[in-house]
C-alpha cells in the first residue's frame, strides 16, 4: 500500500520550472532516498509534501500529491495537522532559540498536549530515538544553541519525532556532519523505519545505498530513475544515473 504518491507533479518558481512531471510512490515503512545534483529540485519536492511552499509568492503547482490516498492540496486539508503527520527536518539544523526541552515540546504543545508528564515522556522518548538522550539528558534546560552541529541536527530530528508523525522528510540531514554523527543518524533511521515512512534527500550516494530501500534520481527537476536501491546502484537503467553515481558527472 502506498503511503505517498506524487502524480505528474510539476512546480514553478516565478515561471521557472523546477520540477517536471514527477511520478513517484513511497510505500509504508519504506525508506526512499532522493539523490541528484545541486539545484535539481530535491528540497522543493520535500517542501511540497509538507506544503511549505504555500507561502511563497509567484509559484505554480501542477499535478497532485496524495498521502494515504488523500490529496493534500485539497481545500478541506488542515495544513498544520498535515504537517504534524508529515515531519520535516531541514538541511540546516535550526534550533529554536530556547532550551533543548522547549525545542522538543514546541510542536506537541501547539498540538494541545499540556500534561507535563506526557511531555516529559515525549522528550525522553524522541531524544532516545534520535540517539541524543545520553548526551543531553543532564542539560535539557540549556539553550539548544549551545549544542554542536551534529547534536543540533539530531535535536531537530527528535523535535520532529516528538510530533509522532507518520512520515519523516529528511533534507540532507548529514551534509554538515562528521562520520560519527552521520553513523548515528543512519542508525536512527534504520531503527525508525519500523514505525515510519521516510524520505531522505542526500548527496551521499553511499549513504543512500546503506539506508534506502528505494532510490530516486532527480536531474534538473526530472525523475530520471526510480527503483530498488540495489538495482539503481548496480545496474542503473539510465546512463545519466550511472554517470552521477560513479562521479563522472558534468
Amino acid at each position: 500500500m502506498n503511503k505517498i504518491l506524487l502524480k505528474d507533479l510539476s512546480f514553478y518558481f516565478e515561471g521557472k520550472k523546477v520540477l517536471n512531471s514527477v511520478n513517484l510512490e513511497v510505500l509504508k515503512n519504506e525508506i526512499l532516498a532522493i539523490i541528484g545534483p545541486a539545484g535539481s529540485g530535491k528540497t522543493t519536492l520535500l517542501r511540497l509534501i509538507n506544503r511549505l511552499e504555500d507561502a511563497t509568492y509567484n509559484t505554480k503547482k501542477e499535478g497532485d500529491i496524495f498521502v494515504d490516498d488523500k490529496d493534500i492540496y485539497s481545500v478541506d486539508i488542515n495544513v498544520p495537522e498535515l504537517r504534524r503527520r508529515i515531519g520535516m527536518v531541514f538541511a540546516q539544523p535550526v534550533p529554536l532559540p530556547r532550551s533543548i526541552y522547549e525545542n522538543i515540546i514546541y510542536g506537541p504543545r501547539l498540538a494541545g498536549i499540556i500534561y507535563k508528564k506526557k511531555l516529559d515522556e515525549l522528550v525522553e522518548h524522541s531524544l532516545r530515538q534520535a540517539f541524543l538522550w545520553d548526551e543531553v539528558k543532564d542539560r535539557l534546560n540549556q539553550s539548544a544553541l549551545s549544542l554542536s552541529g551534529g547534536q543540533k541536527q539530531r535535536l531537530c530530528i527528535a523535535r520532529t519525532l516528538a510530533l509522532q508523525p507518520e512520515v519523516i522528510l529528511l533534507d540532507e540531514p548529514c551534509s554538515s556532519l562528521d562520520p560519527i554523527s552521520t553513523a548515528k543518524i543512519e542508525e536512527a533511521m534504520l531503527r525508525l523505519k519500523e514505525k515510519y515512512t521516510i524520505i531522505i534527500v542526500t548527496n551521499n550516494t553511499k549513504q543512500a545505498a546503506r539506508v534506502a530501500d528505494k532510490v530516486a534520481f532527480l536531474l534538473m527537476g526530472e525523475l530520471i530513475e526510480y527503483g530498488q536501491s540495489r538495482q539503481v546502484f548496480t545496474i542503473p537503467v539510465d546512463k545519466r544515473t550511472d554517470d552521477y553515481i560513479t562521479g563522472r558527472f558534468g
Binding site: N50, R83, M88, F90, Q92, T160
Partner: peptide, 12 residues
C-alpha cells in the same frame, strides 16, 4: 528558517 521550523512543527 525559524518561521519555517514552526510551521513544519504544525504551528499555525
Amino acid at each position: 528558517p525559524l518561521r519555517e521550523v514552526s510551521y513544519s512543527l504544525g504551528g499555525t
